[in-house]
Design a protein around this nucleic acid. Structure first.
Lengths: 143, 143
DNA sequence: TCTTAAATATGATTTTTATCATATTTTAAT
DNA sequence: ATTAAAATATGATAAAAATCATATTTAAGA
């Protein structure tokens, strides 16, 4: 469903949602340590996200990454799009170009509704809401 | 969600369901041509499936691949397991080892029900049923 | 303005997945 | 028995994804 990279990126962003603010930036080293992903690897991903304004950053002394209000009010979808491209979420399960409602592939009916539910949920839930769930103990982020 | 290889394998199996029988075996060359996958590649995949008795085959003159009744009454799940392994279908969307109902990751609630629906559907629908859908014009298999 | 600590840019390496090639074994027909 | 046509076994190559490394740029503090 998602690439490894996307998963890492999502973890990092959720970590930032919980542990950073404009006044309290955190650096790659700490992010990498906390989410258990090699530093050089997550650094590269964070750079892509920052370039697309999905997360915020400042460099130099006292610099680091954080989420501003706009970042927090976005969903996870842009992360997936930037890291994995658009095909990953939208292509038919058998990767048939021409699969659609009129000419559905054999798996289309089985999967379409569920898959759409997933996408709709992912789109509607903001990062801020996801991190609130963790803060209130409704969900967890080990490892 | 699925690897390329699994997708190819599923296509090949559906093709066999529609176009083969014990009396009418078809050879890799024809399968490859019909589903638009390189012959050497699909050959390897078919061999794995045959070894696991997911599809049937005989070699030599007049040999080829086909599905027997047992093959037809199975679901697509074993194909995915053999080609992609078990993790692919069952691991949490963030690949957190410890994600479960008691300690759900932030995406768990959003995704769990839909994902389960997908798995249940995949498990319950037989290859025979899927190919019947195509025969009755309820679904299609271009390319 | 110099130094230090951070992100950024760039690219090299490794691992995995996808693809291709070919020699061997088996089966049926002659 | 011999031959031809098929799958099978094995492994080589290519492409993509994941991982690692390092030089450059930027910002703040002394």
């Amino acid at each position: 469903m998602l690439s490894n990279s996307s998963k890492y990126a999502i973890k990092a962003v959720l970590f930032l949602a919980l542990n950073s603010s404009e006044e309290n930036k955190v650096m790659v080293k700490d992010i990498a340590g906390s989410i258990n992903v090699p530093q050089a690897y997550i650094a590269k991903l964070l750079q892509e996200l920052a370039k697309e304004n999905i997360i915020s950053s400042t460099r130099g002394y006292k610099g680091g990454f954080y989420l501003d209000e706009a970042n927090l009010n976005s969903s996870l979808i842009p992360i997936i799009y930037v890291i994995d491209g658009d095909k990953r979420l939208n292509s038919c399960m058998l990767s048939l170009e021409k699969c659609n409602e009129e000419k559905p592939c054999p798996l289309h009916k089985i999967l379409y509704r569920s898959r759409n539910n997933i996408l709709t949920s992912l789109k509607s839930k903001t990062i801020k809401e996801l991190s609130a769930d963790v803060e209130f103990g409704n969900s967890f982020l080990p490892l």
